[in-house]
């Protein structure tokens, strides 16, 4: 099972958030799982068309994904998937 880890910034909105294993074999499946555990969290990470939000990044085993629209980048059952925010703003 891949492990999903999150930027600390999301804990402001989901105080119980912690790294979790996921059974999903694709990103859509993983986000469905995440929404079951943390209702609404996918809307913080994806827009309503399913694309990654502009100032959010996902890393698979330390490598940034390349398909921000369909989220088709491959991962394995042993992967670490890290969801982070861009360090932008002011």
């Amino acid at each position: 099972m891949p492990t999903i880890k999150f930027t600390y910034a999301l804990k402001r909105f989901f105080p119980e958030l912690k790294a979790i294993p996921a059974a999903g074999k694709s990103f859509p499946e993983i986000f469905t799982e995440l929404d079951q555990q943390y209702p609404g969290i996918s809307s913080y990470i994806l827009d309503e068309q399913g694309s990654l939000r502009k100032h959010v990044n996902i890393f698979i085993d330390g490598k940034m994904i390349t398909d921000r629209k369909q989220l088709s980048d491959a991962f394995t059952s042993g992967s670490e998937i890290y969801i982070m925010q861009a360090l932008s703003g002011g």
Partner: peptide
């Protein structure tokens, strides 16, 4: 109703 609404524009989270 007296309800207050906050329309938010998160830079990161939409």
């Amino acid at each position: 109703t007296g309800a207050w609404w906050a329309c938010q524009d998160h830079g990161h989270w939409g």
